[in-house]
Nucleic acid binder design. Structure first.
Length: 266
DNA sequence: TACAATGTTTTAAG
DNA sequence: CCTTAAAACATTGT
C-alpha cells in the first residue's frame, strides 16, 4: 500500500511514544519480515531503551532509540504502523510490538513483504545514509532526473518511475498519477522523451509528491477529484480531464492505468 | 475459483 | 559489469 506520503503518515503514528521507554518487545520471530535481522540484538537493545526520534525517506523509515538502537522499517505492500492502548492484545499479523507504559507501538503486515532491520551503533546505519537523494532534496535536479531516464532509456517510463534508486518513494499509484498529469504514455521509452517531456515529467513528479505529502501524509485525506487516482480502480473509470474511458495493462510488471486520449507516446 | 493487490529481490538473458 | 523482464515471495479480498 504505502508510497512516499503514506509512509510519512505511518511514521507519525508512533509519535505518541517519543521520549518514552520501551518496557518489553513482542516479536513473531519466524516471520519473513525479520529476514536477515538479528532478532536477539533487537530485543536486548530495545527493551529498556527510549524512542528518541523517527525519520522517513522515500519508502524507508528509521526509528532512533537510546542505547544506540536503530530500527529500520519498510512497509512493503500491506504494512502499517499504529499505536494501541497499553493493555492491547496483539492480533495475527502484529509482528513487532513495542510496549510502553502508556501505549503500545505496533507494526503489522499481513502479506509479509515489509521488512524490519536493526543495528546497534553510534551513527545511523549505512543502508540509511546511503539512500539516494529524495524527491525534495537539492540534489534531485532536472539534470539528475534526465541522467536517470537516459540510463534506463530502453525501459518504459512507467517502469523507470518505479525504480527507487532514481525516484525514491514513488510507487504504482504515484507513477500513474505523474504520467497522467504529464500527459505521457506509460509505455513510452524513457530514453525517447524529448527535452520538453523530460522537463514536464520532472516538474509533475515533484508536484504530485508535494501534494500527496500535504494531503495524504498529513492525515490521510482524500486526493483531489481532479486527479486520476480517484478513478483508476473504478470499474469503468473515466478520465477526469477528458471523460475518455481509462485503459489498464501491465507495464513494468505492475497494473497501469492511463487515459488513451490525454496520454500520447512522445 | 482464479486473479489481483499503493513492493522488492532474485534470477536469467541480452 | 550493466540493464531489462519475469518470477517469486504470502495473504486476503473480490
Amino acid at each position: 500500500m504505502p508510497e512516499l506520503a503514506e509512509v510519512e503518515f505511518y511514521r507519525k503514528q508512533w509519535d505518541s511514544g517519543l521520549r518514552q521507554k520501551i518496557l518489553s518487545v513482542d516479536i513473531h520471530a519466524d516471520k519473513r519480515v525479520f529476514r536477515g535481522t538479528d532478532i536477539d540484538l533487537l530485543r536486548r537493545t530495545l527493551a529498556g531503551a527510549t524512542l528518541l526520534q523517527s525519520r522517513a525517506h522515500g519508502k524507508q523509515m528509521l526509528f532512533c532509540f537510546s542505547k544506540g538502537g536503530w530500527l529500520g522499517l519498510h512497509l512493503g505492500m500491506t504494512g502499517k504502523l499504529r499505536t494501541e492502548s497499553a493493555a492491547f492484545v496483539p492480533v495475527k499479523h502484529d509482528h513487532l510490538v513495542l510496549r510502553q507504559k502508556k501505549q503500545t507501538l505496533v507494526f503489522g503486515d499481513p502479506r509479509l513483504f515489509g521488512r524490519v532491520l536493526f543495528e546497534r551503533g553510534t551513527a545511523a546505519p549505512a543502508w540509511w545514509t546511503n539512500l539516494p537523494p529524495g524527491i525534495f532534496s537539492a540534489q534531485f535536479t532536472l539534470a539528475a532526473c534526465e541522467r536517470f531516464l537516459k540510463r534506463h532509456g530502453k525501459a518504459p517510463v512507467k517502469a523507470v518511475l518505479l525504480l527507487q534508486a532514481g525516484f525514491p518513494g514513488i510507487g504504482n499509484w504515484m507513477a500513474d498519477e505523474i504520467l497522467w498529469q504529464s500527459r505521457l504514455h506509460p509505455r513510452g521509452a524513457a530514453g525517447k522523451l524529448d527535452g520538453t517531456a523530460r522537463k514536464i515529467l520532472f516538474r509533475e513528479t515533484r508536484f504530485v509528491a508535494k501534494q500527496a505529502m500535504k494531503i495524504v501524509g498529513e492525515d490521510f485525506s482524500d486526493l483531489p477529484k481532479s486527479w486520476l487516482f480517484r478513478y483508476r480502480w473504478k470499474k469503468k473509470g473515466i478520465c477526469p480531464r477528458c471523460a475518455a474511458v481509462l485503459e489498464h495493462a501491465s507495464i513494468g510488471g505492475r497494473t497501469t492505468c492511463w487515459c488513451p486520449e490525454c496520454q500520447v507516446e512522445n
